[in-house]
Amino acid sequence: MLLKLDFGSDQPIYMQIRNQIVLGIAQGQLRPGERLPTIRALAEECGINMMTASKAYQLLRQEGYIAADRRAGTVVASGKAAGPQPETIEGLRLRLGELRLAGLSLDQAMDLCRKLYEEGTK
């Protein structure tokens, strides 16, 4: 799986890494139990500071997407998440509002959501 980092973006690099790993897990590019690079290796690979890589992993670990394994280091978490975080629901509310303002009907918005959701279950 490839990370595509935009250094000109307003979004911090650690957040870009976090978001793309979450998407990678959702789309099946990273499978549960799959080993992830160490913080040092990820920093070297991306050409970023170790603190930045550490921050991304810390966030992913807090959210339950990745876990520490005694033998394999950091791996993709195998357990199912307890449910959406309040921030996720707030974010979804905002995006759905944007879709409504963009002129999409409820059916059209649901079709789009279904299509995007299914991309992650293929």
Binding site: M1, L2, L3, K4, L5, D6, F7, G8, I21, G24, L30, E34, R35, L36, P37, T38, A41, L42, E44, E45, C46, G47
Partner: peptide
Amino acid sequence: IPNLRVASVTVPAA
């Protein structure tokens, strides 16, 4: 194509 830094997650893990 847009100027992006590309990094692999799978290769450095091996």
